Computed example of a mutant assay.
Amino acid sequence: MNRLPDLEAWAIFAKVVETRSFAQAAEALRLSKPTVSKAITRLEQRLGVALLNRTSRKLALTEAGRGAVDRAARLLAEGELIEAEIQDRAPVPAGRVRVSAPMSFGLMHLAPILPDFMAAYPAVEIEVDFNDAVVDLVGGGYDLALRIGTLATSSLRARRLCAVRLLVVASPQNLHRFGQPAHPRDLENRPGLVYTGVASPGTVRLTGPGDDSYQVTLSGGLRSNNAEAFLPALRAGCGIALMPEFMIWRELRDGVLEHVLPDWGAAPIALHLVTPPGALRPARVSVLMEYLRSRLSSAPWAIDHDPRQDV
């Protein structure tokens, strides 16, 4: 009879790759570092091949390790789900939820609403990775992600929370100095702030009255892959920019910035909750998802949530 797979060692291997550290994997799994190291050694000896190349400063997957890591991560996730489903028969959700969120949006709008959730569910531990990269939810061991924009086709499950307007904005000082634009073409010869995290930086298509469409190219006095960097320059009157409303709604409310060309608009972007495939979720994940849906879809900058677009 064949020996049973060393499932514990595979789970430890997945956690080491996820954390990129033997020490951090040991902390996450509540094991000693020697236990983690011995599990990886035991697994490699059993297989007769190295899974990790390790030095005092760096871990790197070998070819065999790269071929095994996704399935090892799934084994770990399935094991955690089995335990969670049994534990969730208890009345109080408990355990860790790993969340991925965009940097600026997460710091502005996710972090401030977490304390209320933590007070309501003290047994749930939240681990947030603020990162503008599109992470691998399954391979990275994430329970859910907040994502903004058009989603690529995949096996992931997505719930659309709301839409967010993209607004052309400038400060009153800027508009006093350069004048109030009457048409998108008036934006082309004035200082702009250009977001570089898109395929065509500075290129903006606006739709106006009668469905007229005009494509304008902003020239960049400041260019950045993070639109939050534009806020000080906008407030100081240094330029004009296309900004998501979640980032500048307070400035609009307080008159620090003004909505330019209000009769013209860019296509809105959508905010989604994304989870790994599969209908079953631990209660701790479900309650956090419902909390985020309730709070974010009712935010001052959120528009037109349509539950029929949940998938």
Rank of each mutant, 00 (worst) to 15 (best):
P201F: 03
M118S: 15
T196M: 08
R96F: 07
R190E: 10
L166N: 13
P102N: 02
V99A: 04
P172F: 02
D186F: 06
A111Q: 12
P115G: 11
D129E: 10
V99P: 06
P191F: 09
A182P: 00
L151N: 08
A133Y: 12
V92D: 09
F178N: 11
A119F: 13
P112C: 02
V124L: 01
R96M: 13
G197W: 03
P102A: 05
A123N: 05
P172C: 02
A163G: 15
A170I: 08
S200C: 04
P91W: 04
S155C: 08
D143F: 00
P181F: 05
L161V: 13
R177K: 13
V168A: 03
P115E: 04
V138D: 03
T153H: 12
V204C: 07
P191V: 11
V97H: 05
D132T: 10
R147F: 06
P181M: 05
S200P: 00
F130K: 02
P102S: 03
D132E: 12
Y195I: 05
R190V: 15
Y195C: 04
A152K: 11
S100D: 10
A123L: 12
F105W: 02
L175G: 01
L175E: 01
G141I: 02
V99N: 06
L144R: 00
R165G: 08
L137I: 07
V128T: 14
V194N: 06
D136W: 01
R185W: 03
I113Q: 06
M103V: 15
Q173H: 13
F117A: 08
G192V: 00
D116Y: 10
M103D: 13
S154V: 01
C162S: 14
A119T: 15
G140P: 04
